[in-house]
Amino acid sequence: MAKKDYYEILGISKDASEAEIKKAYRKAAMKYHPDKFTNANEDEKKNAEAKFKELNDAYQVLSDSQKRAQYDRFGHAAFEQGGAGGAGGFGGFGGFGDFEDLGDIFSSFFGGSGSGFGDQRGRRRTVQPGADLRYSVEITLEEASKGVEKHIKYEKNGKCHTCSGTGAEPGSGMQTCSKCNGQGRVKQTQRTMLGNFETVVECDQCHGKGEVPKKKCSNCGGTGIEKEVVEKTVKIPAGIDDGQRLRLSGMGEASPSGGPNGDLYIYIKVKQHSIFERIDDDLVCEIPISYAHATLGGDLEIPTIEGKIKMKIPAGTQNGKVFRLKEKGMPNTRGYGRGDQLVKIVIEIPTNLNDSQKELLKSFDKSLKDKNYNMKKTFFDKIKNLFV
């Protein structure tokens, strides 16, 4: 009997992408997975097995670019002499030879491999890195501007100094873990609506190492871990901003399974400044000046993050006017120069005037004409035109 077209089996077009092929296979594999037919009659079971084998054959060919090219050119004849290879017998629905993608599929649905899939070639032992740690450092805006070194001190889980992290009493050595037989991982059965699935997890006896101490270390009790206090000077770069972090590789917790240490993350908190507000690399400050100073203009003393400077403001400076001081802001952490400082003028209206001052002010105001108030004249001209 002629074999079905592989594209037809997966329900895809001949120009389907790799992602589309995998998606179609996942959907069909879930539908015909034999564990769904555990309680079905024999005919239904056999039909599911046949469908599942077809899907497996089709996917093994179409998911491989070389095999797919051969199939597109010669059809099934390209593999009749054993070139492509089938899925193999079900053998309790576990004998899929070198086909490991099915384990990935069931892992995405159930957090592990399904019914023994994906574990046929043996898993490599993997060791987990130690946990990352977080440490907060508070600095001033001036320190952030120049860069600063800070001394930090923290406690963490480090490698036992007696056994160097092996967990074994010096001179006793290691032996194969009896729970996982040296694999570092064990299977757990999970019941689902589709049947029982096996999840492969790290062995809790050897923590993924595949071996355990013949005699546990007297200092750490076989964990390979002991508390240690770390003191270090951290260099904080100029221009760093509030909420940013620094990563110190390998300065975190030691791994219980013999892997690399975790990392230490230094989170920066910049204290609020009494004068400056930071916006990206720019600094903003408000400078109050008198009405007379704004009217007549003149020199104005301006604070910057690096000290005071003098700036000349023009006569007739209006309230809210913003002056830009080039490169008087914060340095850029990536070396792209400095930001600017924005100086906003706030004209302060005098209060608590005595009678003499009030009379002088009234006399001065009467002496002014429309030409002295450009904004006022423009506004009232608009009102006149509005009601014509």
Rank of each mutant, 00 (worst) to 15 (best):
T333V: 09
T333I: 04
R334K: 06
R334W: 14
G335L: 03
Y336C: 05
Y336F: 04
G337V: 00
G337R: 00
R338G: 05
R338K: 13
R338Q: 12
G339E: 00
D340C: 00
Q341I: 00
Q341F: 00
V343I: 04
V343W: 02
V343Q: 00
V343L: 04
K344Q: 01
K344V: 01
I345W: 01
I345P: 03
V346D: 15
I347K: 02
I347S: 08
E348T: 04
E348Q: 12
I349R: 14
P350F: 02
L353V: 08
N354S: 08
D355H: 13
D355N: 11
Q357S: 06
K358I: 15
K358F: 07
E359S: 13
L360W: 14
L361Y: 11
L361E: 11
L361K: 05
K362W: 09
K362C: 06
K362Y: 10
K362Q: 08
S363G: 10
S363T: 13
S363A: 06
F364N: 15
F364H: 13
K366R: 11
S367L: 09
S367F: 03
S367E: 07
L368D: 08
L368Q: 09
D370F: 10
D370E: 08
D370V: 10
D370Y: 10
K371H: 11
K371R: 09
N372W: 03
N372Q: 03
N372M: 03
N374C: 10
N374A: 14
M375A: 13
K376Y: 10
K377Q: 08
K377V: 12
K377I: 14
K377D: 11
T378D: 14
F379G: 08
F379E: 10
F380P: 02
F380G: 03
F380A: 07
F380Q: 07
